[in-house]
Simulated scan of single mutants.
Amino acid sequence: MPCRRRRRRRRTRIVLLCRVLKVARSSYYAWCEGEAARRARQAADDAPIHEITVVHIVSRHTYGVPRIHAELRGLGRRVSRKRIARVMRECDIRGATRRRRRSLTRRDKKATSVPDLIGCDFHAERPGIKLVGGITYLPTAEGWLYLACWLDLATGEVVGYAMAGHHRAEFVVDALNMAHGRGGLEPGCVVHSDRGSEYTSTPFRDRVGEL
Rank of each mutant, 00 (worst) to 15 (best):
R67D: 01
H50W: 05
T112W: 06
R38Q: 10
C91W: 14
K22I: 06
T112K: 10
G34L: 11
L75A: 08
I57Q: 12
P48H: 07
D116L: 02
R73I: 07
R81N: 01
R19M: 12
G119F: 15
V54G: 14
D121T: 00
K22L: 13
A44N: 07
G128V: 02
L131I: 01
D45S: 07
A85T: 04
T12A: 13
D121C: 02
G119R: 15
A24P: 05
L16I: 12
G74Y: 15
R10V: 11
Y137I: 06
T97C: 10
E35N: 07
K22P: 07
H56Y: 14
R11V: 15
R86Y: 14
H56T: 03
D46K: 15
G74S: 09
A30Q: 07
H56C: 10
S27K: 03
R101F: 03
L16W: 12
K130P: 09
S113R: 15
A36F: 06
K82V: 04
A124R: 00
G133L: 02
V54H: 13
I93T: 02
E90S: 01
R106I: 15
A30P: 02
G133Y: 04
G74Q: 10
K22F: 02
C32N: 07
L21F: 11
T105I: 15
C3M: 11
C18V: 04
C32Y: 09
K109Q: 09
P139R: 13
S80G: 12
P66G: 04
P115D: 02
R98D: 00
F122A: 06
P139W: 04
C91I: 09
Y63C: 02
H50F: 07
R86H: 14
K109A: 08
H69Y: 15
R78P: 07
R107D: 13
R98Y: 03
T97A: 13
P48G: 09
T136S: 09
E125D: 14
R83P: 12
D116T: 03
T12I: 03
R77D: 02
G134K: 06
T105Q: 14
I52E: 07
A141T: 06
I118E: 07
G128T: 00
A141N: 04
R9V: 11
G119S: 12
T105Y: 15
G119H: 08
A47H: 14
Y28V: 05
R60K: 11
L104C: 04
A43L: 13
K110I: 06
V23C: 01
